[in-house]
Simulated scan of single mutants.
Amino acid sequence: MKILITGTAGFVGFHLVEKLLKRGDEIVGIDNINKYYDSNLKYARLEESGINRSDIEWYKEVRSRKYPNYRFVRQNLEDKAQLMALCAREQFDIIVNLAAQAGVRYSVENPDVYVQSNVVGFLNILEVSRYFKVKHLVYASSSSVYGLNETMPFSVEHNVSHPVSLYAATKKSNELMAHTYSHLYNIPTTGLRFFTVYGPWGRPDMAYFLFADSIINGKPIKVFNHGKMKRDFTYVDDIISGVISVLDRPASTDLEWDGKKPNPSSSSAPYKIYNIGNNQSVSLNRFIEAIERNLNREAIKQYFDIQDGDVPETWADIDSLHDLCGYEPSTTIEQGVEKFITWYINYKNYVPIDALV
């Protein structure tokens, strides 16, 4: 298939590109390579995919030196004219929208950025899907949409009308916008609520990355909610397997959908929502312990109350995704953290801890 993937300099986008290219799909990736976190890591991901950093310019197509069926273009989703021109030229079968302004806490202080990237940019994705009759639009939502909901595990059939951060609100708006376009224009759309993705090539603004960096440098780590925070930590390979399974199964109408008892995760339109998680809630303290074991060092912990915009716990009900494609996450916390730390030490060129003892 010919697939447009947005956000391919990002964490999940990078891994998805690698997997799809190896199975033979033709990929065009776009990313604006913004400076929300260290852009050197974004360029390093692209280099790993064969995109030479020195060749990257705005709106210039760069062909991978590693994969003949991969091309990359640096551009913004907010630039509708350029996005329309790209899609008119390429005529994609599928679009996977992973580009977004990420970060729950950052959205508290920088709301305007989220509206431009996550709302205006997503509207443009919907528009090109409409005009060029894309066969399936798959887009990243987030577990953060569950907000004040305290019923565990989080189900796609739960109400998600009480977000506690603007980031979450923009992700919920994406789901609503996608449903509107599915209803009006019969575009198959599938939203994927990711649950705390971690692993090699991950985001340095995420807690596990910050923890590893601080522990290895002997600096204190900030532990919010006094370590009682719980997250459905999901290893990136498990996320990617779920995305690809959904990608190959375009959303369809729910023949049993009832407007008098509406199921929020489906519709009379070709619209679906799924959770992709590890199907377990793990304490932040346990996650930190796994990092400490793999680094052979104890963290210096500073405890704080929960931050604005955070929720105390997440836990994904993945039954609907399992019913669709047999989805089963297979990576334990201990296995996933070990793989991350191995990559991290190599990426940072640190001397192995044992050699320092």
Rank of each mutant, 00 (worst) to 15 (best):
N349D: 10
I300E: 12
F195P: 00
L184M: 15
Q280K: 02
S320D: 12
N32S: 10
G199C: 08
N217C: 02
V282L: 00
W257Q: 09
D25F: 12
S330V: 15
M1K: 12
K35W: 11
N34T: 14
I345L: 14
N186R: 15
T234Q: 08
N118K: 08
A100K: 14
S173G: 02
M177R: 02
N296Q: 14
K272E: 15
F194Q: 04
D254A: 07
N97W: 02
M152E: 10
L16T: 05
I300M: 07
D354N: 15
Y303C: 09
L21K: 08
P204A: 00
N40I: 06
N52P: 01
F224C: 13
S155L: 05
V28E: 04
P68R: 11
S54Q: 10
G336L: 03
K66S: 08
G121H: 07
K42S: 04
R63D: 06
G24T: 12
N294C: 09
V120Y: 11
A140E: 09
H179L: 15
I216H: 04
R193G: 02
N346E: 11
L324W: 08
D31K: 10
A251D: 10
E57A: 13
Y198H: 00
I94G: 00
V236P: 02
K35S: 14
G121Y: 07
V96S: 03
N124A: 12
S129K: 06
S320Y: 06
F72V: 07
I288T: 03
E18M: 06
K42T: 08
Y181A: 06
N275W: 02
G121C: 10
L126N: 11
L210A: 08
A85Y: 03
G199L: 06
N174T: 06
T151W: 13
S268P: 07
N32T: 14
A316E: 01
L210S: 03
K66Q: 05
H179N: 15
L284K: 06
Q101D: 10
I244C: 04
A102E: 12
Y139W: 13
L41N: 01
P188Y: 09
I244E: 14
V223P: 01
A212F: 04
R293H: 11
V236M: 07
M84W: 07
N76Q: 00
E48H: 00
Y350D: 10
T332S: 09
R23M: 14
K80W: 13
Y114V: 09
S320A: 13
R89C: 11
S214R: 04
P270H: 07
Y208P: 03
G199M: 10
V337S: 03
E328F: 00
D213P: 02
K60R: 08
V164Y: 03
G227D: 00
Y114I: 12
D254N: 12
K133E: 11
S283Q: 00
F132T: 02
S142R: 02
D237I: 08
V223I: 15
S267R: 05
Y303K: 01
S161K: 09
Q91D: 13
G259P: 12
Y327F: 13
A168K: 05
A100F: 10
Y344D: 05
E150C: 12
P163C: 01
A140C: 12
